[in-house]
Simulated scan of single mutants.
Amino acid sequence: MFLNIGKGLLIFFSSVLILGCSRNTITGRSQLSLVPESEVQAMAITQYKSFLTSNKVVPLTNKDAEMVQRVGKRIANAIQKYYTEHGQPNALKDYHWEFNLVESKEVNAWCMPGGKVVVYTGILPITQNETALAIVLGHEITHAVAGHGRERMSQQLLAQGIQLAGNVALSNNDQAVNLFNQVYAPTAQVGVLLPNSRKQEYEADHYGLIFAAMAGYDPREAIPFWKRMEALGGAKPPVFLSDHPADADRIKKLEALMPEALTYYKPANN
Protein backbone atom coordinates (compact mmCIF):
# COMPACT_ATOMS: atom_id res chain seq x y z
CA MET A 1 0.00 0.00 0.00
CA PHE A 2 2.78 2.45 0.93
CA LEU A 3 4.52 1.61 -2.33
CA ASN A 4 1.37 2.47 -4.28
CA ILE A 5 1.00 5.77 -2.38
CA GLY A 6 4.61 6.59 -3.15
CA LYS A 7 4.06 5.87 -6.84
CA GLY A 8 0.93 8.00 -6.78
CA LEU A 9 2.75 10.95 -5.28
CA LEU A 10 5.58 10.55 -7.76
CA ILE A 11 3.13 10.54 -10.65
CA PHE A 12 1.32 13.58 -9.21
CA PHE A 13 4.45 15.68 -8.74
CA SER A 14 5.82 14.58 -12.11
CA SER A 15 2.58 15.71 -13.75
CA VAL A 16 2.74 19.06 -11.97
CA LEU A 17 6.32 19.59 -13.09
CA ILE A 18 5.51 18.72 -16.68
CA LEU A 19 2.26 20.67 -16.96
CA GLY A 20 3.46 23.58 -14.81
CA CYS A 21 6.65 24.29 -16.72
CA SER A 22 7.06 26.86 -19.46
CA ARG A 23 10.05 27.90 -21.54
CA ASN A 24 11.26 31.45 -21.07
CA THR A 25 11.15 33.17 -24.45
CA ILE A 26 14.47 34.96 -23.95
CA THR A 27 16.68 32.77 -21.76
CA GLY A 28 15.35 29.54 -23.28
CA ARG A 29 15.30 27.95 -19.84
CA SER A 30 12.37 25.82 -18.71
CA GLN A 31 10.77 27.31 -15.58
CA LEU A 32 8.17 26.08 -13.11
CA SER A 33 5.16 28.32 -13.68
CA LEU A 34 2.17 27.52 -11.47
CA VAL A 35 1.24 31.16 -10.95
CA PRO A 36 -0.52 33.17 -13.70
CA GLU A 37 1.45 36.25 -14.71
CA SER A 38 -1.76 38.28 -14.89
CA GLU A 39 -2.58 37.51 -11.24
CA VAL A 40 0.92 38.34 -10.04
CA GLN A 41 0.83 41.64 -11.91
CA ALA A 42 -2.53 42.50 -10.34
CA MET A 43 -1.11 41.86 -6.87
CA ALA A 44 1.98 43.90 -7.76
CA ILE A 45 -0.13 46.93 -8.70
CA THR A 46 -1.92 46.81 -5.36
CA GLN A 47 1.28 46.43 -3.35
CA TYR A 48 3.10 49.07 -5.37
CA LYS A 49 0.40 51.68 -4.82
CA SER A 50 0.33 50.85 -1.13
CA PHE A 51 4.11 51.18 -0.88
CA LEU A 52 4.17 54.56 -2.63
CA THR A 53 1.45 56.01 -0.40
CA SER A 54 3.25 54.92 2.76
CA ASN A 55 6.74 56.07 1.74
CA LYS A 56 8.26 59.38 0.69
CA VAL A 57 8.48 59.53 -3.09
CA VAL A 58 11.03 62.03 -4.37
CA PRO A 59 9.34 64.49 -6.78
CA LEU A 60 10.37 64.58 -10.44
CA THR A 61 11.63 68.13 -10.00
CA ASN A 62 14.58 66.52 -8.19
CA LYS A 63 17.51 65.75 -10.53
CA ASP A 64 18.04 62.28 -9.05
CA ALA A 65 14.37 61.37 -9.49
CA GLU A 66 14.54 62.62 -13.07
CA MET A 67 17.65 60.47 -13.60
CA VAL A 68 15.84 57.37 -12.32
CA GLN A 69 13.01 58.08 -14.77
CA ARG A 70 15.41 58.62 -17.66
CA VAL A 71 17.48 55.51 -17.01
CA GLY A 72 14.43 53.36 -16.39
CA LYS A 73 12.73 54.38 -19.62
CA ARG A 74 15.88 53.78 -21.63
CA ILE A 75 16.28 50.30 -20.14
CA ALA A 76 12.59 49.52 -20.76
CA ASN A 77 12.89 50.64 -24.39
CA ALA A 78 16.01 48.51 -24.83
CA ILE A 79 14.23 45.45 -23.46
CA GLN A 80 11.30 45.99 -25.81
CA LYS A 81 13.74 46.27 -28.72
CA TYR A 82 15.50 43.07 -27.63
CA TYR A 83 12.23 41.14 -27.42
CA THR A 84 11.10 42.50 -30.79
CA GLU A 85 14.37 41.52 -32.46
CA HIS A 86 13.93 38.02 -31.04
CA GLY A 87 10.44 37.59 -32.45
CA GLN A 88 8.53 38.42 -29.25
CA PRO A 89 7.18 41.96 -29.81
CA ASN A 90 4.12 41.39 -27.59
CA ALA A 91 5.86 39.59 -24.72
CA LEU A 92 5.62 42.65 -22.45
CA LYS A 93 2.36 44.12 -23.77
CA ASP A 94 0.84 44.09 -20.27
CA TYR A 95 3.77 45.96 -18.72
CA HIS A 96 2.95 49.50 -17.65
CA TRP A 97 6.27 50.89 -16.53
CA GLU A 98 6.61 53.12 -13.48
CA PHE A 99 9.90 54.37 -12.04
CA ASN A 100 10.07 56.08 -8.67
CA LEU A 101 12.87 57.26 -6.40
CA VAL A 102 12.00 56.77 -2.73
CA GLU A 103 13.63 58.45 0.25
CA SER A 104 15.34 55.73 2.29
CA LYS A 105 18.78 54.98 3.72
CA GLU A 106 18.49 51.41 2.46
CA VAL A 107 20.93 50.43 -0.27
CA ASN A 108 18.35 48.83 -2.48
CA ALA A 109 16.30 48.84 -5.69
CA TRP A 110 13.69 46.46 -7.05
CA CYS A 111 11.27 45.76 -9.87
CA MET A 112 7.91 44.04 -9.47
CA PRO A 113 5.96 42.19 -12.19
CA GLY A 114 4.42 44.54 -14.72
CA GLY A 115 7.34 46.98 -14.56
CA LYS A 116 6.79 48.61 -11.16
CA VAL A 117 10.22 49.93 -10.16
CA VAL A 118 11.58 51.62 -7.04
CA VAL A 119 15.07 52.94 -6.39
CA TYR A 120 16.03 53.93 -2.84
CA THR A 121 18.07 57.10 -2.39
CA GLY A 122 20.46 55.05 -0.24
CA ILE A 123 21.89 53.26 -3.27
CA LEU A 124 22.80 56.43 -5.17
CA PRO A 125 26.02 57.13 -3.21
CA ILE A 126 27.13 53.64 -4.27
CA THR A 127 26.10 53.84 -7.92
CA GLN A 128 27.75 57.29 -8.06
CA ASN A 129 26.76 57.81 -11.71
CA GLU A 130 23.98 57.24 -14.22
CA THR A 131 25.71 54.30 -15.91
CA ALA A 132 26.03 52.33 -12.68
CA LEU A 133 22.35 53.03 -11.96
CA ALA A 134 21.60 51.51 -15.38
CA ILE A 135 23.54 48.40 -14.34
CA VAL A 136 21.37 48.12 -11.23
CA LEU A 137 18.09 48.65 -13.07
CA GLY A 138 19.08 46.30 -15.89
CA HIS A 139 19.73 43.60 -13.30
CA GLU A 140 16.56 44.20 -11.27
CA ILE A 141 14.26 44.52 -14.27
CA THR A 142 15.65 41.30 -15.72
CA HIS A 143 14.46 39.48 -12.60
CA ALA A 144 10.94 40.71 -13.40
CA VAL A 145 10.79 40.11 -17.15
CA ALA A 146 12.45 36.71 -16.75
CA GLY A 147 9.70 35.69 -14.32
CA HIS A 148 12.10 34.90 -11.49
CA GLY A 149 9.69 35.94 -8.73
CA ARG A 150 6.86 33.91 -10.24
CA GLU A 151 9.22 30.96 -10.49
CA ARG A 152 10.16 31.23 -6.81
CA MET A 153 6.51 31.46 -5.83
CA SER A 154 5.74 28.36 -7.90
CA GLN A 155 8.57 26.41 -6.29
CA GLN A 156 7.32 27.30 -2.82
CA LEU A 157 3.72 26.46 -3.70
CA LEU A 158 4.84 23.04 -4.85
CA ALA A 159 7.11 22.49 -1.85
CA GLN A 160 4.36 23.43 0.60
CA GLY A 161 1.65 21.51 -1.23
CA ILE A 162 -0.48 24.62 -1.68
CA GLN A 163 -3.23 24.14 -4.25
CA LEU A 164 -4.78 27.02 -6.16
CA ALA A 165 -8.20 26.76 -7.78
CA GLY A 166 -7.95 27.51 -11.48
CA ASN A 167 -10.22 30.56 -11.54
CA VAL A 168 -9.63 31.90 -8.03
CA ALA A 169 -7.58 35.09 -7.81
CA LEU A 170 -4.32 34.77 -5.91
CA SER A 171 -5.35 37.72 -3.77
CA ASN A 172 -8.14 35.54 -2.34
CA ASN A 173 -5.70 32.88 -1.17
CA ASP A 174 -3.96 33.82 2.09
CA GLN A 175 -1.11 31.36 1.53
CA ALA A 176 -0.46 32.68 -1.97
CA VAL A 177 -0.51 36.28 -0.71
CA ASN A 178 1.98 35.35 2.01
CA LEU A 179 4.30 33.82 -0.58
CA PHE A 180 3.97 36.91 -2.78
CA ASN A 181 4.98 39.05 0.17
CA GLN A 182 7.98 36.84 0.86
CA VAL A 183 9.15 37.13 -2.73
CA TYR A 184 8.55 40.90 -2.90
CA ALA A 185 9.42 41.71 0.70
CA PRO A 186 10.51 45.35 0.14
CA THR A 187 6.92 46.36 -0.63
CA ALA A 188 5.32 44.33 2.12
CA GLN A 189 7.82 45.05 4.91
CA VAL A 190 8.27 41.32 5.47
CA GLY A 191 11.50 40.40 7.21
CA VAL A 192 12.45 37.38 5.11
CA LEU A 193 12.97 37.49 1.35
CA LEU A 194 12.97 34.26 -0.62
CA PRO A 195 16.42 34.26 -2.23
CA ASN A 196 17.10 34.18 -5.93
CA SER A 197 18.85 31.05 -7.11
CA ARG A 198 22.38 31.22 -8.49
CA LYS A 199 20.93 30.50 -11.93
CA GLN A 200 18.50 33.43 -11.62
CA GLU A 201 21.26 35.73 -10.44
CA TYR A 202 23.44 34.73 -13.38
CA GLU A 203 20.56 35.41 -15.78
CA ALA A 204 19.94 38.81 -14.20
CA ASP A 205 23.63 39.69 -14.51
CA HIS A 206 23.82 38.34 -18.07
CA TYR A 207 20.77 40.00 -19.58
CA GLY A 208 20.99 43.04 -17.33
CA LEU A 209 24.36 43.84 -18.92
CA ILE A 210 22.90 43.38 -22.40
CA PHE A 211 19.90 45.61 -21.68
CA ALA A 212 22.07 48.34 -20.16
CA ALA A 213 24.40 48.19 -23.16
CA MET A 214 21.49 48.38 -25.62
CA ALA A 215 20.24 51.43 -23.73
CA GLY A 216 23.55 53.16 -24.45
CA TYR A 217 25.29 52.58 -21.12
CA ASP A 218 28.79 51.14 -20.91
CA PRO A 219 28.39 47.65 -19.37
CA ARG A 220 31.98 47.75 -18.08
CA GLU A 221 30.74 50.02 -15.28
CA ALA A 222 29.31 46.85 -13.68
CA ILE A 223 32.75 45.82 -12.43
CA PRO A 224 33.60 48.91 -10.34
CA PHE A 225 29.98 49.14 -9.15
CA TRP A 226 29.91 45.57 -7.80
CA LYS A 227 33.33 46.10 -6.25
CA ARG A 228 31.91 49.10 -4.40
CA MET A 229 28.96 46.97 -3.30
CA GLU A 230 31.31 44.23 -2.18
CA ALA A 231 33.23 46.73 -0.08
CA LEU A 232 30.01 47.44 1.83
CA GLY A 233 29.84 43.87 3.08
CA GLY A 234 30.69 42.77 6.57
CA ALA A 235 28.72 41.58 9.56
CA LYS A 236 25.51 43.20 8.34
CA PRO A 237 25.50 43.75 4.56
CA PRO A 238 22.87 45.95 2.88
CA VAL A 239 19.51 44.37 1.95
CA PHE A 240 20.54 44.57 -1.69
CA LEU A 241 23.49 42.27 -0.99
CA SER A 242 21.55 39.81 1.14
CA ASP A 243 19.57 38.82 -1.95
CA HIS A 244 22.25 39.66 -4.52
CA PRO A 245 25.57 38.24 -3.32
CA ALA A 246 28.46 40.34 -4.60
CA ASP A 247 31.71 38.40 -4.43
CA ALA A 248 34.85 37.69 -6.39
CA ASP A 249 33.12 34.83 -8.22
CA ARG A 250 30.35 37.13 -9.44
CA ILE A 251 32.84 39.71 -10.68
CA LYS A 252 34.74 37.02 -12.58
CA LYS A 253 31.51 35.93 -14.25
CA LEU A 254 30.69 39.53 -15.14
CA GLU A 255 34.11 39.89 -16.73
CA ALA A 256 33.46 36.72 -18.72
CA LEU A 257 30.11 38.11 -19.91
CA MET A 258 31.56 41.49 -20.88
CA PRO A 259 32.70 40.69 -24.46
CA GLU A 260 29.15 39.66 -25.41
CA ALA A 261 27.59 42.68 -23.68
CA LEU A 262 29.96 45.04 -25.48
CA THR A 263 28.70 43.81 -28.85
CA TYR A 264 25.37 45.46 -27.96
CA TYR A 265 26.95 48.70 -26.73
CA LYS A 266 26.67 51.88 -28.72
CA PRO A 267 27.11 55.09 -26.67
CA ALA A 268 23.91 57.10 -26.56
CA ASN A 269 23.76 60.71 -27.65
CA ASN A 270 22.67 62.34 -24.39
Rank of each mutant, 00 (worst) to 15 (best):
F2M: 11
I5W: 01
I5L: 07
I5C: 05
G6S: 09
K7R: 14
L9T: 06
I11F: 01
S14F: 08
L17I: 11
L19G: 01
L19V: 03
S22Q: 13
R23T: 13
N24T: 07
S30F: 04
Q31M: 05
S33T: 11
L34Q: 10
S38L: 07
A42H: 08
A44R: 05
S50W: 05
S50E: 04
L52T: 07
L52M: 10
T61D: 15
G72F: 15
I75A: 04
N77R: 14
A78V: 10
A78Q: 05
I79F: 03
Q80A: 13
K81A: 11
K81F: 06
Q88N: 14
D94W: 06
F99H: 01
E103G: 07
E106N: 13
E106K: 13
N108W: 08
W110R: 07
K116T: 05
T121Y: 13
L124H: 05
L124M: 12
L124K: 08
P125L: 11
E130S: 03
T131L: 06
T131P: 01
A134G: 01
L137D: 06
G138R: 02
T142R: 06
A144Q: 04
A144N: 02
G149N: 04
Q155D: 10
Q156T: 11
L164A: 08
G166R: 15
V168W: 06
A169K: 15
D174T: 14
Q175G: 03
Q175H: 11
N178L: 11
Y184N: 03
P186D: 08
T187W: 04
A188W: 03
V190K: 15
G191E: 09
P195V: 03
N196T: 02
E201Y: 03
L209G: 05
L209C: 02
R220W: 06
E221Q: 12
R228N: 00
R228P: 08
M229V: 09
L232K: 10
G233W: 06
P237E: 00
V239Y: 10
D243I: 09
A246S: 15
R250G: 02
E255M: 07
E255V: 01
E260P: 01
E260I: 00
A261G: 02
T263H: 09
Y264K: 06
K266L: 00
